[in-house]
Design a protein around this nucleic acid. Structure first.
Lengths: 187, 187
DNA sequence: TAGATTGTCTAGCAGTGCTAGAATGGCGGT
DNA sequence: ACCGCCATTCTAGCACTGCTAGACAATCTA
C-alpha cells in the first residue's frame, strides 16, 4: 500500500506549493494581494483545499514566515566571521531582497511564538548569531540586551526606510554609523 | 446669511468627530475594527457621509496620523531640555500610550508625504527635536544621519516590543543602553 | 409659494475570509 | 468485474469589507 505514501507525498508537495505561491505573490504585489481565491487559482485547486492544509490565511503567512526565519538564520550565520558589520549588512540586504517575507517575520501581527519558553529554535537562531557577534565588544554589558538594541536599530532602519520615512540619501551612512556605535569597524 | 457659516462650522465639527471616533475605536480594538460602517454608526450618520469628508478610509487614517504628529512633536519638544534620555523616554511612552496612533504614523502604509520637499512641517518637527538634542554629542559626525539612526533604534524598540518579539524583561535596560550609546547620561 | 440646489440615505456592487453540504473520485471486499 | 464505502474536492453561499449610484428629503433663492 505505498499508494498511501504517494498520496501523503502529493499532499505535502501541494502544501509546499501553497506557501511558495503565497510568498511569490506577496513579494510581487504585497500581502494584500494574497487572497485565498488567487492562491487557489495559482495551485489550480479550489479555495477550500487551502483550509485542509492550513487553518486560515494567517496560518499560511505563518508558514511563510517560518521559512523566512530559516533562510534568514542561514544568511546571518554564513557571514558571522565577518563580525558586526558583515552581519548588519546581511540583515539589511535580506530585508531588502525579500521585503514581504521580512514583514511577515517582523512586522505583521501573526502570533508567532516569540519570547516564550516554547519558542522554536528557528526563531531564536538568528538572534543568537547577532548576540554572538556582539559578545566580543560587549565589555561587561548585558550582551542579551545589547543584542536586542542592535537588532531593534536594524529593524528600525529597515522599516522606516521601506516606508520612505527616512531619506534615501544617508542610507549607507546610517548603517555605517550604527555599526561603529556598536563596536564594529566601519565599512 | 451666517447660516452658511454655521453650516460650515457644523461640517467641520462633524469631520472632527469622525477622526476622533476613528482614533478611539483604533486604540480600543485596533485599526482592523475601524470600519466605515462602525464609524458611521458612531457619528450617527450614514456611511456615505464619510466620503463627503474624506476620499476613503485611508484618508481618515491619514488625518488621524497628522493629529498624532502634532501631539508627538508637542510631547518631544516639551522635554527637550532634559536631553537625550528625556526625549527617548518621551518617544517610547508616547508609543506606549497611543499604540494605534503610533502605528498610523510610523508603521502603516498610508502614503504620508515624508521625505519629499513638500513634507509638511508637522511631520518634520518631531525629528528636528531629536536632531537638536543630539547635536551637542555629535562630535563632528553627520548630525542628520545620527538622528535618523537614533530614531530608527527607538522605532525598532517600540515595534519589536509591541509584537512581543523582544522579552519584556530587559525593556528598561534596552532603552538605557541605547541612550548611553548615543551620548546621553543613563537613567 | 414654486423651483432649484444642497445634503443625506437606501440599496447595491465587487471583493474578502471562511464553511456547509453536495458531488466526485478511487479504494477495498466480494 | 462489480458494488458500496470513504476520503477528497468542489459548488454555492454566508457575513463582512470599502465604496458608490441614484432616489429621496430638506433647505435656500427668488
Amino acid at each position: 500500500m505505498n499508494q498511501r505514501l504517494r498520496r501523503e507525498r502529493d499532499r505535502a508537495e501541494r502544501e509546499r506549493r501553497i506557501v511558495a505561491a503565497a510568498r511569490e505573490l506577496a513579494e510581487a504585489e504585497g500581502w494584500d494581494a494574497v487572497t485565498t481565491r488567487r492562491l487557489a487559482a495559482l495551485i489550480e485547486y479550489s479555495q477550500p483545499v487551502l483550509y485542509s492544509h492550513f487553518k486560515g490565511k494567517d496560518a499560511i503567512m505563518r508558514a511563510a514566515a517560518l521559512e523566512g526565519f530559516a533562510e534568514f538564520t542561514e544568511r546571518l550565520t554564513s557571514v558571522r566571521s565577518g563580525g558586526v558589520r558583515a552581519v548588519a549588512e546581511a540583515y539589511v540586504s535580506f530585508a531588502d531582497e525579500k521585503p514581504a517575507l521580512y514583514d511577515a517575520m517582523f512586522t505583521l501581527d501573526l502570533d508567532l511564538p516569540f519570547g516564550a519558553d516554547d519558542t522554536p529554535p528557528v526563531l531564536r537562531a538568528g538572534f543568537e548569531t547577532l548576540q554572538a557577534v556582539l559578545e566580543p565588544v560587549a565589555e561587561g554589558l548585558n550582551t542579551g540586551a545589547l543584542a536586542e538594541v542592535f537588532w531593534a536599530a536594524l529593524h528600525g532602519l529597515v522599516t522606516l526606510d521601506r516606508g520612505r520615512r527616512q531619506p534615501r540619501r544617508y542610507r549607507e551612512e546610517r548603517l555605517a554609523l550604527l555599526v561603529t556605535r556598536f563596536g564594529g569597524t566601519p565599512g
